[in-house]
Design a protein around this nucleic acid. Structure first.
Lengths: 187, 187, 187, 187
DNA sequence: AATGAATGAGTTTTCATTCAT
DNA sequence: CATGAATGAAAACTCATTCAT
């Protein structure tokens, strides 16, 4: 599914500028920032925004898409590390903590995802992250550290519901409690 | 903060109709429903909305107020039942399940509250529910069913983060996982 | 043109309270004060305002009417004084200065008069003040102090155009210049 | 305060249409004309009004600005004519008569300006008109036709207080009386 | 008569989206 | 392709006036 024809260099540059600006503005001001504001921040005219993203929803979805990609890559990286011998359960804990913290920092992105009703992951990202996550889970279960009934979906649920608008300490407590429900308590 | 004076009968009726409509519309159409829409649903003119609730924030706050009152009363009722001899841990589980289901129905109300910066619990409700919750927790801990380090705040966190936009089965799974982190696993 | 039947005592009291409040509010906040605000200041309900004054215009007109009455009485008093032997031209100067200062203090009343398009004087007031003004003018002309072509209308014009929103010193200068056009310069 | 960049041709056209319509509508319907009405009269959508003038105050200020520019230019032109040998006092009379007539046509604009707190003359216009007016005054005083104590501020006062809501004949009389206070009576 | 709740047209302003230049 | 001006449908809120209690 590559673009029908390669975008011209300056068009690529514009697309990047727009996404950068959108990410920044949405994170700072929430998903209700006017398109004009994003356009100005990007240093282009609104018309250009609409050339790249036919509707605001498309733009917001694209911003979320970036986030999803990062998330997917983080999961894949954790799976790599475990394949390289690292402890599975602690890799999972660290991964989840990182993701939750990132979502908190980028809280507007989450709000945007809800507001727009966009799917959190693209099909491609969905399958890549599911593969990696499953590898992590199975490793931790082989180690006897993770409850046997826990699935990748359970972790997605955890990520989806992590509180973003609370103090870090509260978020840490939340994570501790939730993860306690995943582990066997062994070790 | 005097009780003003008792509202006229028809005004009370309207106030109720407005709150009912607001809850319904916000739940159905999300936190951004126009005041006009709520007015129409309530069968009154916008002016009447504004007579009862000078700003949209006030209206949303009132809707939240009802909801959080119900929540507070549910916690108190559960505490009563336990005082009457019911099993503490199962009372807590049932309570939390009920609350989470109710919160899911009112998902948009929560969003509206956040959009509008309304506080969820009034100071009075806060203290009433804290007292009742603490009684429940202590009873369950005496029974050895609840981890000793769990506090009322932990339950608020659970309630606050319950996923709303998912199917009931998913929500049930989420609750099971989260509660697993609270319990000792005994029995 | 007396009221068809004497108003009940409390109705009279209310009418007075309303006019007092209206004068005060209009003077302070301009003719755009909401009727509700006037009602509250008067300590009555809006409905009562509307019973006494069918439209807002009527109320504003009534407030102006009071002013006109005072104005008429001031002219009559000056004429009395001159009849009693006082200097006519200086009586006129003092009269005009007083009226202009009063209008400045009550600047909103003037604004109201313009906004509402109400006649400044009622027919009765018109004729009473015209008689008195004419007497003053003729006396000053007999003294050779006032230009022979000056009429009562000229003075009304002066009163109507006096600047209200400027500092007292500026207003005094304005009056001096304008009156210089009226006098013969003699004495 | 850079000149931004030259507006596009059609934007300039619209700006003009909007200012024309605003002047016309405010003059005709008073200072409270809705923005929608002005937009319709201008043949544009409201949004276009707001693109050119972010608030109603800005629009009224711009209308005033045009008017006060014309006024300033009229004074400068009169000063030119006098420098070219024309009679100073009659130039002043004619100037004042013209200005007052123009102000009468724009009565509502003045009201709108006050409603909205807009300044009448910009600092630049203020100084330009003061220079020209002073030249006129000094010439008339050299001719012995104007009282020596009369200043530019006195003329502003005259212009400021000219009656607008009266018939032309009445206004002419008013002007005659007022100017009589300015002149020496010589010639 | 008084009360004050209800009405609803109207006001300013915003912003996603379109389209002429 | 980019620009940025124009569009126009909302949205929140106000207030003169009416009318049930």
């Amino acid at each position: 599914m590559e673009p029908s024809r390669p975008l011209r260099a300056d068009a690529v540059r514009n697309r990047t500028k727009i996404l950068d600006a959108a990410r920044e503005q949405i994170t700072r001001l929430g998903p209700d920032v006017p398109m004009d504001t994003i356009a100005e921040a990007a240093g282009v005219a609104v018309g250009t925004l609409y050339r790249h993203f036919p509707t605001k929803t498309d733009l917001v979805t694209a911003v979320i898409g970036e986030h999803s990609e990062l998330l997917t890559e983080a999961i894949e990286a954790a799976a790599e590390r475990v394949a390289g011998g690292a402890g599975a359960m602690s890799a999972i804990s660290a991964l989840v903590r990182d993701i939750v913290e990132a979502a908190a920092a980028d809280r507007a992105v989450k709000a945007a995802a809800q507001n727009v009703g966009a799917e959190y992951l693209t099909p491609d990202q969905e399958s890549r992250s599911r593969v990696a996550m499953t590898r992590l889970i199975e490793a931790a279960q082989r180690d006897g550290r993770l409850r046997d009934d826990v699935t990748a979906d359970d972790f997605y649920l955890l990520i989806l519901t992590a509180p973003t608008d609370v103090e870090p300490a509260v978020r840490a407590r939340w994570l501790q409690l939730f993860l306690a429900g995943f582990t066997t308590g062994k070790d």
